[in-house]
Design a protein around this nucleic acid. Structure first.
Lengths: 202, 202
DNA sequence: GTGTTTCCATACCGACCGGTATATAGTAAC
DNA sequence: GTTACTATATACCGGTCGGTATGGAAACAC
């Protein structure tokens, strides 16, 4: 069986796919899936439409690859956040991590997942479902972490881990909406502080 | 000066503008401003395009009228919520009111304001700004109410009324995102209970 | 060099977008 | 009835959408 990488033949491409994908991610982030036109995408990526289709498939395929990049580069803080020693520590890392992403100076404000979930409406149902499915899997990890925290006595037994997980993701999503609407970083930091101030337990 | 209402002349319209507007609101609610096509709108409203344009102007004007209807019919609970005796009472009325709207059995799930804020991207900046402006004005009323609550000792002085207002609207917006994503009413009720359980003060 | 493969650029495709011109049908005033 | 006026229905407008056919340019193997 031939496992060797195929030898390059013919004219090599003149652009870097990763850079182009990063540019596409920025456009999707700012415009949403349906709001991003192929014209704006190709211009931001610095390539022409045939090059885009040859390299990334169609628009939907491009979006999924951009979503992969988003999870890998922007949502990596979530995994490490779950390693905090207490439930409140997890919450703080998640909230501050969300804040950092959603109010960055270079990237668009808001959360790509929220934008895609709320904004995709028409034929993009499969996109929407995909984004929601990804969210579900990350929520499951958070739930498992909070169940452990409950066993370790991080918060009162009167509060269900599921309820606390839903509550925390709700604050993060609401923060994304506020960030999309242009709320200042100072107010969003105040929001994080308030959420932590009312947080039950340690 | 002639203040009498103008006498009807010519052929009267065959549809009820309020019913048509209500149908348009449902479409905008489910699809967002840009996702709602004139074809889908006219079909849902049961009228043809010329009738729509003659009665409601253009798409943007129709949306603003639908937004007025939304505020009048769906967001009316907000005003009465501010009349609750304590800050926690205000929060509970707002949260349960949001929940009722966003998980209704007939209307689409989620909040039209959030959908319009997050989803409008391209040429619809004026729509977006309008929705955000309306939100700002209602937030100001909430802030004033919470300042009074602070003076009345409803919650500790360590928490700023502004911070608490931002926090509460954040939970409501996050709830709208979850509702748009299809979260069950049971989980959302649990979310409301949790938010009230951790609420600071009375 | 030649042949082959692949990339890039342009022009184009059908479909749909928001919006409208035109013609017909229907109602009120007279 | 006639006239004036307005709603409706159909067909259509230019523009943009996502996606592609075509032709030439560039780099590989030989």
């Amino acid at each position: 069986m031939e496992t060797q990488t195929q030898v390059a033949r013919g004219r090599p491409r003149e652009f870097d796919p990763e850079e182009a994908l990063s540019a596409a991610l920025t456009v999707f982030w700012r415009r949403g899936y349906e709001g991003a036109s192929m014209a704006e995408l190709t211009e931001a990526m610095g390539i022409t439409k045939p090059s885009l289709y040859a390299c990334f498939g169609n628009k939907e395929s491009l979006f999924r690859k951009a979503l992969d990049l988003y999870e890998r580069d922007k949502l990596c803080y979530m995994k490490s956040a779950l390693e905090a020693p207490t439930a409140k520590g997890v919450a703080e890392r998640l909230l501050r991590g969300s804040l950092a992403i959603q109010t960055g100076t270079t990237d668009p404000h808001g959360c790509l997942g929220v934008i895609s979930t709320v904004g995709c409406t028409i034929q993009a149902d499969s996109i929407r479902d995909d984004v929601i499915a990804r969210r579900v899997s990350s929520d499951a990890a958070l739930l498992a972490r909070l169940e452990r925290a409950r066993d370790e006595g991080d918060f009162p037994d009167t509060i269900e881990p599921q309820a606390l997980a839903t509550y925390l993701t709700t604050v993060m999503q609401g923060m994304a909406v506020h960030a999309s609407a242009g709320m200042s970083r100072e107010l969003l930091e105040q929001l994080v502080d308030t959420t932590l101030a009312v947080w039950p337990g340690k």
